[in-house]
Nucleic acid binder design. Structure first.
Length: 487
RNA sequence: GGCCCUAUCGUCUAACGGCUAGGACAUGCGGUUCUCAUCCGUAAAAUCGGGGUUCGAUUCCCCGUAGGGCUACCA
């Protein structure tokens, strides 16, 4: 079952908000690493900050990952051999390991209150020193500690950073990065509310859950030496580390909720496809080194490699995502696309005659090459369901005068009238209309006023397609309306 | 302030010392087209600066510069 070389990765978001773009990319890479090695991909919730907990965030993370096709083998909602996968349910474990560290002399109790700490920090900053805990409580005698503990004084557990060490992080993306232990602060491991900090929890859980590759974004690189020290203190095997580049705002700052639309839920709502999102996100920080840039999940599984992951941050560019999305919309089988578009169409109930399957399908077929995001279809096709009030000036093609427009529309009306119901198709209509239009100085003299009459818009699909979908009766009705508008 | 990371077209990126620095998105122009969209063609567009190393640097080294990250009882 689980061999020593088993690759296991995890995605470990904190449920402090909805799943976001950057989180999904991190999850994707972790998923790819695990799955291409036939390993396991684990989801773990790092909810160790009571104050930042957001209700519903966990569910959004589950559904977002599933939407994207990143199916985890173990997780909070599905269980697994190392359950629970929610850190707030593992408090006893962290306490046990924190105590072990204290017993070994690698950690100590600290009774300093936040105010004192904050003042110390201010002072240090004022003196242009690096803010660091002064280890006041480290020199407390055992007797004093026992008294304070017995009295129930609030306290934390801090790790003791050794002196004179150089800690080397061997990162799969960045290579060797080393840190001097003097630069490291005595990190709080266990908070006074009994919850662990990220640093303790992540190390304990990654070890207990047998995570082979610790993957996360670059912002965690500076705290990795502390984690390595913890692995050493516990006598645990140090996992592989891979720190991915950040996804950036257009202003090159770390992409965050405050600066842009990062919530996956919004992209799903707007009608972005998982294939497009995955493809785009995969290429934000990685590429195969060839000109090919359309990649399915299966292909990514084959080609992805950490060696080709970039070091520099990448700006999230919605234009390129849109292009990918448009591409995948064009590729999609019509039936599937139709199903996905229906939620974005006007309420079919109000137009039962047009909600019939094949008609909706024809509308979607028309829009397939015109959509970048699914939600656009509502606006694009509104005129099928109700003719918008149109500007009669729009009927005019080039230098046509009212008389010519009327003549043109009359001609179109005759052709449509004379087209039998059984032959009322776009093929037949385009054949007959084009034949007539060919006799004119320019096809636009016939086609433009007709198209505007049918659609009410400056830009739209061709008149033949619209007429077929509207049907003979409605088409004639709209032409009549247009003629009246001229006066 | 300290520590760390990074640096090729506007953006995502290719070129693991050796061609006119390639591709994609976006943009401009042109073709197809009644319009839009699609599709096709085409153009413009980059190696942050300075030193080295080398026959030769986008590539390796150093120093600057710029940007970013971290520096919490947040993750």
């Amino acid at each position: 079952m689980s061999s020593k070389n088993q690759v296991r990765t995890r995605f470990a978001p904190s449920p402090t908000g909805y799943l976001h773009i950057g989180g999904l990319r991190t999850a994707l890479y972790a998923y790819l690493i695990a799955k291409q090695a036939s390993g396991q991909f684990v989801l773990r919730l790092e909810d160790t900050d009571l104050e930042r907990y957001v209700a519903g965030a966990a569910e959004a993370i589950y559904s977002g990952l599933k939407w994207a096709g990143l199916h985890y083998d173990e997780g909070p909602d599905i269980g697994g051999p190392y359950a629970p996968y929610v850190q707030s349910q593992r408090l006893d474990t962290y306490k046990k390991y924190a105590n072990e560290l204290v017993a070994k002399g690698h950690a100590y109790y600290c009774f300093c209150d936040k105010k004192t700490l904050e003042e110390m920090r201010q002072e240090q900053v004022a003196k242009k020193q690096a803010p660091k805990y002064d280890r006041l409580c480290f020199s407390l005698s055992q007797e004093k500690i026992d008294v304070k503990l017995k009295a129930g004084e609030p306290h934390v557990v801090r790790m003791k950073i050794p002196a004179g060490r150089v800690i080397e992080v061997n990162d799969l993306v960045r290579g060797k990065v080393s840190y001097k232990s003097e630069e490291l602060d005595d990190q709080v491991l266990l908070k006074s509310d009994g919850y662990p900090t990220y640093h303790l929890a992540v190390v304990v859980d990654d070890h207990l859950m047998k995570i082979s590759h610790v993957t996360r974004t670059e912002e965690w690189l500076p705290s990795t030496p502390k984690h390595i020290l913890l692995y050493e203190y516990f006598g645990w095997q140090i996992p592989q580390f891979a720190h991915f580049p950040l996804i950036l705002n257009p202003d090159k700052t770390k992409m965050s909720k405050r600066t842009g639309d990062v919530a996956m839920g919004n992209y799903i709502k707007k009608g972005y496809l998982p294939e497009a999102m995955i493809n785009y996100l995969a290429f934000l920080g990685w590429n195969p080194g060839t000109a090919k840039e359309i990649y399915s999940m299966e292909e990514l599984l084959k080609e992805f490699s950490l060696e080709r992951v970039h070091k520099a941050g990448a700006i999230f560019n919605i234009e390129k995502l849109n292009w990918y999305n448009g591409h995948y919309i064009k590729q999609m089988p019509l039936d599937k696309l139709t199903g996905m578009c229906i939620p974005y169409l006007p309420d079919p109930v109000s137009h039962p005659e047009r909600s019939e399957g094949s008609k909706i399908k024809k509308i979607v077929a028309l829009e397939q090459e015109r959509l970048q995001v699914l939600s656009e279809i509502g606006e694009h096709t509104a005129f099928f369901f109700a003719l918008p009030p149109f500007d009669k000036a729009l009927l005019k093609w080039k230098e046509m005068n009212d008389e010519e427009i009327k003549k043109s529309l009359d001609m179109a009306k005759d052709i449509i009238t004379n087209t039998p119901d059984s032959e009322f198709t776009k093929e037949k209509l385009s054949e007959t209309l084009l034949a007539e239009a060919a006799k004119m100085p320019n096809k636009g003299y016939l086609l433009w006023p007709l198209r505007v009459a049918l659609s009410g818009q400056k830009n739209s699909p061709p008149p033949f397609d619209i007429a077929e979908i509207l049907g003979k009766e409605e088409s004639l009705e709209r032409i009549k309306t247009a003629v009246y508008s001229i006066g």
